[in-house]
């Protein structure tokens, strides 16, 4: 099994007629994802390489039945696009948009929680999620993933997600699902959300977690793993040498004072029984060892 998506998931791309939406939407379809609709206000009735485009997500849902949307619109438009999808009843929204103001993200998170608790948002500022061989929503290059499991991957970073997939696939170890939760201060879906889903998924037998400096999402994940998780977890935290007070690329990746350091996160995870690797390559090696020793 996979988490959040599978081979039947019908996907709409909000912003399909834009350059990002078109490029990645078509790439996702070429991978085998069921991309059934595009949404661009004012472009309803047109199509992109055979994919019908609608003015609103409501119309797309009514016409095609949509299980997930892929939001690929600029920062100004993304918060409204996410909320429109939630209002239309779409259960899964994947938003790759980078540079959404933090106030808008906090507003969207609060609105989803209060008014649309059935909608899961992944991102913003994330590579999306891929269930190898079944469904790819977002910007991950499908050919670096390997179908069949048994490893689930959850990551805060984009390219490091690819690095993690690559390390495992090269060794012949497949993945059930790989979820990029994004590097922003208010991610819709957190480490804990994804870990819960992996814990409940019978095909996922081990989890690789890629964190980074800033915030306390990894510490909360450690708490969850310690008390609730039975499956082995290997973790790597990026930014062990990051200086204090500087944002390392991602809006969420900043060490302030003694808070948010890689050291603190690694210690919390190790104390929770997680196998902590000092670099992504080592994390891959450790995970391969675990998978090979699984009964």
């Amino acid at each position: 099994m996979s988490i959040f998506v599978d081979e039947k998931t019908k996907v709409a791309v909000q912003g399909l007629t834009g350059s990002q939406g078109r490029f990645h939407g078509l790439r996702n379809r070429a991978y085998g994802t069921k991309v059934v609709a595009g949404v661009t206000p004012g472009k309803g009735g047109s199509e992109v390489e055979g994919i019908p485009v609608y003015d609103t997500i409501d119309e797309a849902v009514a016409a095609q039945g949509v299980d997930a949307t892929f939001v690929a619109v600029p920062p100004r438009a993304a918060p409204a696009a996410i909320l429109q999808a939630a209002e239309a009843g779409v259960p899964l929204v994947v938003c790759i948009t980078e540079h959404i103001p933090a106030k808008d993200e906090a507003y969207v998170a609060a609105k989803l929680q209060r008014d649309f608790p059935k909608t899961r948002l992944i991102g913003p500022n994330c590579p999306g999620l891929i269930s190898p061989g079944k469904c790819n929503i977002g910007i991950t290059a499908g050919d670096i993933a390997l179908p069949g499991g048994p490893v689930g991957i959850v990551s805060r970073s984009g390219t490091l997600t690819y690095q993690a997939l690559h390390e495992l696939s090269q060794q012949g170890v497949g993945q059930t699902t790989c979820v990029g939760i994004g590097g922003d201060p208010v991610p819709g879906t957190t480490f804990v959300d994804v870990l819960e889903a992996f814990e409940a998924d019978s095909e996922t037998r081990a989890v690789m977690m890629i964190g980074e400096i800033g915030g306390e999402a990894e510490e909360l994940a450690a708490e969850y793993i310690k008390t609730k998780m039975s499956k082995p977890v290997v973790a790597y935290i990026a930014g062990q040498t990051a200086p204090t007070g500087r944002k390392m690329g991602h809006a969420g990746a900043i060490v302030s004072g003694s808070k948010g350091t890689a050291k603190g996160k690694m210690e919390a995870l190790a104390a929770a029984g997680v196998i902590v690797a000092e670099n992504p390559t080592r994390a891959g090696e450790l995970m391969v060892e675990i998978v090979r020793s699984l009964p």
């Binding site: 990551s155 805060r156 970073s157 984009g158 390219t159 490091l160 997600t161 690095q163 590097g183 890629i210 980074e212 400096i213 790597y236 990026a238 930014g239 062990q240 040498t241 990051a242 390392m248 690329g249 991602h250 990746a253 890689a262 000092e278 670099n279 992504p280």
Partner: peptide
């Protein structure tokens, strides 16, 4: 490096 995570990791 390309990507903030990979750049941080390269520093590490």
């Amino acid at each position: 490096a390309n990507g903030a995570g990979l750049a941080m990791s390269t520093l590490d």
